[in-house]
Amino acid sequence: MRTLLNVIWLVFSGFWLFLGYLLAAVIMFVLIITIPWGIAAARIGVYALWPFGKTVVATPGAGVGSFLGNVVWVVLAGFWIAIGHFFSGIALCVTIIGIPFGIANFKLIPVALMPLGKQIVDIP
């Protein structure tokens, strides 16, 4: 079932969101000092590409550095990517079949805003 949901997600939303994260990652890699944010964007982009069967958990011990890094991320890219998730979620919720995918988009908004200090793990 997860595979079917992931394939449908990939066609209707996942690929475009992945491209948004990939663009953010490339911009962060070019600026050199923002490479940690580029790594986070690439990691979350892969999660946005194939989200069913995975979840986001907080990293224990993530401290002030992660918080400050997240503030910089929100200013540089997180806000715009979260807006992309919001509008994609609304568009998917227009149909009954798309509601689970819209909810998945809404669940990606917090990690799009604050990616540092989070881990993406498989659901058993």
Rank of each mutant, 00 (worst) to 15 (best):
V72Q: 03
G63W: 03
I35F: 05
G84R: 04
W80D: 07
I39F: 12
F86P: 01
A41M: 04
F52M: 13
A82M: 11
T55R: 15
W37F: 06
K54H: 07
F86G: 04
S66N: 15
A42F: 11
L76P: 13
T59I: 15
G45T: 02
T55S: 07
W73N: 01
W80R: 05
W80C: 05
L49K: 03
A58S: 15
A82Y: 08
G84M: 04
W80V: 07
L92I: 11
G53W: 03
V74N: 11
A82E: 08
I33H: 12
W73H: 13
I83P: 11
A77N: 03
A62E: 10
W73P: 01
A77E: 11
G89H: 02
W73Q: 07
T59G: 11
N70W: 02
A58Q: 15
W37C: 15
A77P: 11
F86C: 06
G38V: 02
P51C: 08
T34G: 07
I33M: 09
G53K: 03
L68V: 14
G65H: 03
A58M: 14
T34N: 00
P51Q: 06
V71G: 05
V56M: 09
I35R: 14
V46P: 11
A58Y: 02
G89R: 05
G89S: 07
Y47N: 04
F52N: 11
L76D: 13
P51Y: 00
S88R: 13
V71A: 09
L49P: 15
G53D: 07
Y47A: 02
F86V: 04
K54T: 08
G45A: 04
I39G: 06
F87M: 11
G63V: 01
V56F: 09
V46W: 07
K54L: 10
P51V: 06
G84W: 12
T55N: 05
R43D: 01
A58L: 14
L92C: 11
L68G: 05
W50Q: 00
W80M: 09
R43K: 12
V75F: 06
G61A: 14
A42P: 10
L68F: 10
G38R: 06
A91H: 10
Y47S: 02
G69A: 00
F67A: 13
G45S: 07
G61R: 06
L76Y: 14
R43A: 14
I35W: 08
G78W: 02
V71Y: 00
L92N: 12
A91Q: 09
W80Q: 08
P51A: 00
V46I: 08
H85P: 03
A48M: 03
L49E: 12
T34P: 01
V57I: 04
G89P: 00
R43S: 09
A62L: 13
V75N: 03
T55K: 08
L68C: 06
R43C: 12
V75A: 12
Y47P: 13
I83Q: 06
I44N: 12
W37M: 15
K54M: 12
G78L: 01
R43T: 14
I81H: 05
T55Y: 00
